[in-house]
Design a protein around this nucleic acid. Structure first.
Length: 556
RNA sequence: UGGGGCGUAGCCAAGUGGUAAGGCAUCGGGUUUUGAUCCCGUGUAUCGCAGGUUCGAAUCCUGCCGCCCCAGCCA
């Protein structure tokens, strides 16, 4: 147990239930509907459901909530399993489906009918809506509400037998059409759908609704605490109503917490699906997507996501968390684990005019400045180098301590160089820099104690590897696109930029996440990269206080 | 306008009658061959507002305001 650590309100309830002896073991479930990919919001639920069970020595079911065939598919089931595993959680032999319980559910529905607590309604969907009333006006009873038990049983068995078309009849719980809680106005519990099911195949043509299936599934599995998001709070009376009526052996308790919203992104499966279907992103695992698979492909480490949701906390307050908070978790974990490398994103040629034509030196470079265990590597150095265009300014402000005409800068793990001449192309763009190096300043020799303010990264031209590097930015320009009338209007048109980069030779090995020094963390794109044409994704930039200064200067 | 939920610093978040933790961000400063990391320091938070109870209120009471969710045969 994690004593002394502040516990969220749900853990308090659960730990209390353990201490009071109400429960001797905790059983939770993570119940996604396999109708899309899991996203950052689900990470929170996964960490809570699996986390609290693991902490208490309990168990967690991964339950596919597949009560609505037509929207659900095995592809999504597989993706969900992959994502939960990747995040670091294990359900053991507790992979279940709501559809595993269709027989029990069907029997329970019949019991409800026998108890006079459910009836077959033959009103059209539209008529049912009209009878439901509004938020301020009570509903009115369906003319079919008082059918006899026998008639209901007969009708329901014929629904089951496939005698009716979709929508002809529906089974409803008989509760209270005047309830101020809309969910209690005789909710539908079974509907007719002549459509095969992703797990149950052709066995059924009637399917249970979420409210009916969920609580009972929880009960069948012996779930002690059924954790869900706030929008189901209104459903809790209904959840409890079914349990009150049917009195299953185990009685689960539903507890609701607020969803986690990430600024500048959306967490609605429906909208994420639109991004995919409309080709705005390449697929569900596009590295810009807030899906688990997208973040995985982008290179986010799972421990960073776990740390992120831990910091976010579990409460009932609506949250919209800054993107920076997530990115910071990613930087923190990668900062420790990623080896350092050098790469030039927007190459600008530097010729060292006083360096021997055919000479190549080998520079020793640390793989991690803070951790000697990472060792060192050899970096080839020669007369022609690539540096980043951002590291040169023809007319530089005072505080710019990179390269400028007549100015000096240190090449990381190399020499101090001075910019002697700026060569431009016909369009007047800076095309090449003629520089001279100071042979006494070779890194690590201690021959000179000269200091220069700036250090920049570089790659030897003749040794460089060409690679395509994808630079990602937020998908939306609005902090809360969830609330936009039409998310298309707040899309960030430049969320992806692809550059032709030059990499140091050791990057051919294609490691896991690495840091390109002074630029950020990058990883090989598992799908598109090939040995001949490497493709890297930028996971996240480094913090950049220079960019911040520039931005402030612009605002003045 | 019915019902449910939520309001503590820019973003999260502890706190449950004894005088406002912590994290992230911000802003200073130090170290640094990554303008990174690291290290120090940095916040008058009218605890949504207004009344009330109390020696004492973010915590209790009353009234108000704001935001979110609910009228699928979706989950």
């Amino acid at each position: 147990m994690t004593d002394n650590e502040p516990r969220d309100f749900i853990r308090k309830i659960i730990y209390d239930d353990l201490e009071s002896g109400k429960h001797t073991g905790i059983v939770t479930r993570f119940p996604p509907e396999p109708n899309g990919y899991l996203h950052i919001g689900h990470v929170m639920a996964i960490c809570l459901d699996f986390g609290v069970a693991a902490e208490t020595g309990g168990k967690t079911f991964l339950r596919l909530d597949d009560t609505n065939p037509g929207k659900e598919s095995p592809e999504f089931v597989q993706a969900i399993k992959d994502d939960v595993h990747w995040l670091g959680f294990d359900w053991g032999d507790r992979l279940t489906h709501a559809s595993d319980y269709f027989d029990h559910l069907h029997e329970s529905a019949i019991r409800l009918i026998e108890m006079g607590a459910a009836y077959v309604d033959s009103l059209s969907a539209e008529a049912i809506r009209e009878h439901r009333g509004t938020l301020t006006k009570p509903g009115t009873n369906s003319p079919f509400r008082d059918r006899s038990v026998e008639e209901n049983l007969d009708l329901f068995s014929r629904m089951y037998a496939g005698e009716f078309a979709d929508g002809e009849h529906v089974l409803r719980a008989k509760i209270d059409m005047a309830s101020p809680n809309m969910n209690l106005r005789d909710p539908a519990i079974y509907r007719i759908r002549h459509i095969p099911h992703q797990n149950a195949g052709d066995k059924w043509c009637i399917y249970p609704m979420y409210d009916f299936a969920h609580g009972l599934s929880d009960a069948y599995e012996g779930i002690t605490h059924s954790l869900c998001t706030l929008e189901f709070e209104d459903h809790r009376p209904l959840y409890d109503w079914f349990l009150d009526q049917l009195k299953p052996e185990h009685r689960p308790r539903q507890i609701e917490f607020s969803r986690l919203n990430l600024a500048y992104t959306i967490t609605s499966k429906r909208k994420l699906k639109m991004l995919v279907d409309e080709g705005i992103v390449s697929d569900w695992d596009d590295p810009r997507m807030p899906t688990i698979s997208g973040m995985r492909r982008r290179g986010y480490p799972p421990e960073a996501l776990r740390e992120f949701v831990k910091r976010a906390g579990v409460t009932k307050k609506d949250k919209l968390i800054e993107m920076g908070a997530l990115e910071n978790c990613v930087r923190e974990t990668l900062g420790d684990s990623a080896p350092r490398r050098m790469a030039v994103l927007r190459p600008l040629k530097v010729v060292l005019t006083n360096y021997p034509e055919d000479q190549v030196e080998s520079m020793e470079a640390m793989n991690h400045p803070g951790n000697p265990d990472f060792g060192t590597r050899a970096l080839p150095f020669s007369r022609e180098l690539w540096i980043d265009q951002d590291d040169f300014m023809e007319e530089a402000p005072r505080k710019f301590f990179r390269l400028k005409p007549g100015g000096e800068v240190r090449l990381r793990f190399g020499y101090i160089i001075r910019c002697d001449e700026v060569i431009k192309n016909d369009a007047g763009e800076v095309f090449e820099l003629r520089c001279s190096y100071d042979p006494d300043t070779r890194s690590g020799t201690g021959k000179s104690d000269r200091k220069v303010k700036g250090t920049i990264h570089w790659v030897s031209c003749q040794h460089a590897i060409d690679a395509s590097v994808r630079l990602y930015d937020r998908l939306f320009n609005d902090a809360n696109p969830n609330m936009a009338d039409d998310f298309h209007s707040v899309l960030n048109a430049s969320s992806l930029e692809v550059v032709a980069a030059k990499l140091e030779p050791s990057l051919a090995a294609g490691d896991d996440a690495v840091q390109f020094e002074r630029l950020g963390y990058f990883s090989v794109d598992a799908q598109d990269s090939t040995p001949d044409a490497p493709v890297f994704n930028r996971i996240v930039t480094l913090r950049d206080s220079w960019a911040k200064l520039e931005k402030q200067a612009l605002q003045k």
